[in-house]
């Protein structure tokens, strides 16, 4: 029983990380109907930025905030410079550009920081809490993600900019007619997604350790989470992330060897897409052809 509680709680913690990255994917999908395959590598690169800041003696939380800000600016620039020219191009062009970004981030990280695996500090106490049911890091991750989600919710719900971004994503033409600069809304969306991804990267790095391929597995789980929750639903993506995180831990402990974790995520993705393309909470379905 204790083991079960422990598995569920640590599943919620990793699930929170999947939820963050899934949310980043959904934010870009809402506005552009495409999936940013480079989201994971962008998060990985952000994590290296945080690591470098910590290395030169920056206190952890200052490094955290700086990294989030830098990632936001980076995301905005990427949208303006690289993604914008193919905005109206067909799907294959988007895919190629996103894969190009993925490869470049991975290569540049390897080039600058080498492929040696690095330790990443956790800002939370590592000792077990609640009678061994959960580690301090797990609780910290859950707390940070929760705060971030609340902030995002408040931003989209109650600020004029958040409202404008939702309007631009829903009906770009009508949004222009009320004076919203839709192109900038997309760029800010990319910035926010990059910032959210950076938080996910920083939270997962103490567990997975830092290397240029760190996020590829996490991205797979984020795909599964976003699709399970419904790629058209931000709330669904968050719940999907938590479900996938818990499921991963339980299945990995009780059913299938953890060496097949990625295959399990792949299977989940295929099952959702074939059986229920709208996901659990999505409003409208992924179009079938």
């Amino acid at each position: 029983m204790t083991q079960l509680t422990q598995q569920i709680l640590s599943g919620v913690a990793t699930g929170a990380i999947y939820a963050s990255l899934a949310l980043a994917l959904v934010m870009i999908h809402q506005a552009t109907e495409s999936v940013n395959f480079a989201q994971g590598e962008m998060a990985m690169f952000s994590t290296y930025i945080a690591w470098s800041l910590v290395q030169v003696g920056t206190p952890f939380w200052i490094a955290f905030v700086l990294t989030v800000v830098i990632s936001f600016i980076g995301g905005v620039l990427i949208e303006r410079i690289i993604v914008r020219p193919v905005e109206n191009a067909p799907v294959l062009s988007h895919v190629i550009v996103f894969i190009g970004l993925l490869v470049i981030f991975s290569a540049v990280a390897g080039w600058i920081f080498t492929y040696t695996v690095k330790q990443f500090p956790s800002p939370f106490p590592t000792k077990p809490l609640l009678g061994g049911a959960v580690t301090g890091h797990d609780l910290g991750v859950i707390g940070v993600t929760f705060v971030m989600l609340i902030l995002l919710f408040l931003f989209f719900r109650f600020t004029p900019l958040g409202l404008a971004m939702r309007a631009a994503a829903q009906n770009p033409e009508s949004a222009r007619l009320v004076g919203i600069r839709v192109g900038w809304m997309l760029a800010i969306g990319w910035g926010l997604a990059a910032a959210v991804g950076a938080v996910a990267g920083i939270m997962v790095a103490p567990i997975l350790f830092l290397d240029p391929h760190m996020m590829s597995g996490v991205l797979l789980y984020a795909f599964a989470a976003a699709l399970l929750g419904g790629i058209s639903s931000p709330g669904g993506a968050v719940l999907g992330g938590l479900i996938v995180g818990v499921l991963e831990n339980l299945v990995g402990t009780y059913l299938i060897a953890s060496e097949l974790k990625l295959t399990m995520a792949l299977a989940l993705i295929i099952i959702v897409l074939v059986v229920k393309p709208s996901g659990l909470f999505g409003a409208h379905a992924v179009k079938r052809v």
């Binding site: 999936v35 897409l273 074939v274 079938r288």
Partner: peptide, 14 residues
């Protein structure tokens, strides 16, 4: 067959 292009890309990448 049942997947839109983008999701086929996603599945094959996975």
């Amino acid at each position: 067959l049942r997947l839109e292009n983008l999701y086929l890309a996603l599945v094959t990448l996975s």
